[in-house]
């Protein structure tokens, strides 16, 4: 899935949400068959309040990965965090409510642009304006 960082940020600046869905075919383990899944990629938030920034990947409308901010207590496995975190998928519970501190992210991220660029990078989401993304990291 290739997206343009500039296009995403323009939508958010205009008070909209970036929300793109694609059909993706995957092989089913231990079988010859394939199935189609709906991948949904969402970037939302109020540019003025970083508390609300979220980059999320959903499968069949359920979050499986993503980044956000929380002034919180303890994340998954009791790891304390206060700030940027990554959602981690729990196969048993079938949700990604658990959070781990975002690895190597600074506590201070000044702009939504930098937040989205970092999230794209860590989630291996390729950007059409790749050079700009690299420059921000």
């Amino acid at each position: 899935m290739g997206v343009s960082l500039g296009a995403v940020l323009k939508m958010i600046d205009e008070g909209k949400r970036f929300d793109r869905s694609v059909q993706h075919r995957i092989a089913i383990a231990a079988s010859d068959s394939q199935t189609a899944i709906t991948l949904r990629f969402v970037v939302v938030g109020n540019p003025e309040h970083f508390d609300s920034w979220n980059v999320t990947l959903l499968v069949h409308n359920r979050r499986i990965d993503g980044f956000g901010w929380e002034q919180g207590r303890r994340g998954t496995h009791g790891v304390p965090f206060n700030g940027w975190h990554r959602h981690c998928w729990d196969a048993d519970k079938q949700h990604a409510e658990g959070k781990l501190p975002a690895p190597s992210w600074p506590l201070e991220i000044a702009t939504l642009r930098e937040f989205v660029a970092r999230a794209f990078n860590d989630m291996n989401i390729s950007c059409e304006d790749e050079n700009e993304t690299s420059r921000l990291l």
Partner: peptide, 11 residues
């Protein structure tokens, strides 16, 4: 805007 953002991010 956290509530709206979280709801939308969870489908």
């Amino acid at each position: 805007g956290k509530t709206d953002s979280e709801l939308f991010s969870q489908g």
